[in-house]
Simulated assay, not measured.
Amino acid sequence: MDFDYSKLRGRIKEIYGTQDNFADALNMGRVSLSQRLTGKLEFTQDEIMKSCELLKFDPSEIPSYFFTPMV
């Protein structure tokens, strides 16, 4: 199943300005982040939890950022 990361992308832009800046904060390469945001790779639980902290949203919001099905 493919997921819609548009809400996550918006939050990244809002907080970090660019995906590159967010990738750095996440200690991840920009290509690795891009592969996750395009659905080529999956986010790990650790990456999701760290994203939650870095992007300042409550863990209860994880489904809306990471698991919204693509329509």
Rank of each mutant, 00 (worst) to 15 (best):
S60M: 03
R9T: 03
I15F: 02
E42D: 13
N21P: 12
D4Y: 04
K56V: 09
M28E: 11
D24E: 12
V71E: 07
E53M: 12
P59K: 03
Q45D: 14
I15H: 05
M28D: 02
Q35T: 11
V71A: 04
Y16P: 15
D58M: 00
V31T: 15
L37H: 06
F66V: 11
K56P: 10
F67M: 06
S6F: 00
M28Y: 02
A23V: 08
A23H: 05
I48F: 02
M28S: 13
E42F: 02
S32W: 10
Q19F: 00
L55H: 05
F43K: 07
A25I: 11
R9Y: 01
L37V: 04
M49I: 11
S51D: 04
R11P: 05
A23S: 12
S51M: 10
E53K: 15
D46S: 13
S60C: 03
P69Q: 08
F57H: 06
D20A: 14
L33Y: 06
P59M: 04
M49E: 14
T44Q: 08
G17T: 08
K56Q: 15
F66P: 15
D20Y: 13
F67S: 05
V31R: 13
L33N: 09
I15P: 11
P63N: 04
D58R: 04
T18R: 03
R11S: 00
P59A: 04
P69A: 08
T38V: 06
S51E: 03
S51H: 09
I48Q: 04
Q45W: 03
T68V: 13
R36T: 07
L55S: 03
L41S: 15
D20G: 10
I15S: 04
P59S: 05
G10W: 02
T68E: 00
E42V: 07
G17M: 09
L41Q: 14
F67Y: 13
I48W: 00
L54R: 08
V31E: 08
K50N: 13
F3T: 09
V71Y: 00
I12D: 02
